[in-house]
């Protein structure tokens, strides 16, 4: 019952976010209508980092406890992260087309997100190349952790060194948010509700993995 209410609540909030992003929120000074994609682009980028972080945590847990389920959780978190990194890239690319004039021009931010996708594509390639389950699990976990420690270089350091046209990300050096209160309201509601969608997806997939493992146990 509570579950159902939560789902309905999430649906309502997300609808409000979409309406709010297009109608309620005022435009930033001197910027066009296209900046409204902000309310979708930033949450996607944020969830990407969260998902890959969760994947790395499960990978560490696997290496510590050597339980098969943690490997599957890590895989599923990374798969969801990959989904959101694609969404962040697509929304960002649309934004780039409108404000910089082309869908892709190798801005440092675009380069770094492209490399991020390559890293996790390589992670899935590694998984498919090892057949024994426990060996695959440890190799993938190690690669995942290595990948995750190099992510800060792509996301934070490389764009800092090279001049980028990208506005300061959410986590900027001054720790300030340049938005009017109305924009902030829509923005943070959007951030929260999309994160909840991600959490919901993750919980569902973890439940599925648990059921699969139980089924395997019963078969044996």
């Amino acid at each position: 019952m509570v579950n159902k209410l939560l789902k309905i609540g999430l649906f309502l909030i997300l609808s409000l976010v979409i309406i709010g992003a297009f109608i309620y929120a005022p435009l930033a000074k001197g910027l066009g209508e296209f900046t409204r994609v902000l309310y979708f682009h930033v949450p996607m980028a944020w969830i990407t980092v969260v998902a890959f972080f969760i994947g790395a945590v499960y990978s560490i847990l696997y290496l510590k406890k050597k339980e098969h389920k943690y490997d599957l959780y890590a895989e599923t978190a990374n798969q969801l992260g990959f989904l959101f990194v694609v969404l962040a890239t697509v929304t960002g690319s649309i934004w780039a087309k409108m404000s910089w004039g082309s869908f892709w021009n190798w801005d440092p931010r675009e380069t770094s997100i492209f490399i991020l996708m390559l890293v996790y594509a390589a992670y899935f390639a590694l998984r498919s190349a090892v057949e024994q389950a426990d060996r695959r699990a440890s190799l993938a976990a190690v690669y995942d952790i290595i990948a995750f420690v190099t992510v800060p270089f792509f996301v934070f350091i490389v764009p800092r060194i090279y001049a980028s046209l990208h506005p300061d990300p959410l986590i900027n050096t001054q720790g300030k948010i340049h938005m009017s209160p109305k924009m902030q309201l829509v923005f943070f509601t959007s951030l929260f509700s999309y994160t909840m969608v991600f959490v919901w997806m993750l919980i569902m997939r973890i439940k599925m993995i648990k059921l699969k493992l139980k089924l395997k146990e019963m078969e044996q």
């Binding site: 490399i115 390559l118 890293v119 594509a121 390589a122 390639a125 590694l126 190349a129 090892v130 057949e131 060996r135 190799l139 190690v142 690669y143 290595i146 990948a147 190099t150 270089f153 792509f154 350091i157 490389v158």
Partner: peptide, 27 residues
């Protein structure tokens, strides 16, 4: 070196090395 250690344990040694090392070493 660390990616070499990973791929030495996998089945597809030659092809995988560049795929795994390239994105990590791009910085």
């Amino acid at each position: 070196t660390i990616v070499a250690a990973i791929i030495a344990k996998s089945n597809a040694r030659g092809a995988l090395f560049t795929v795994l090392a390239f994105p990590i070493l791009l910085p």
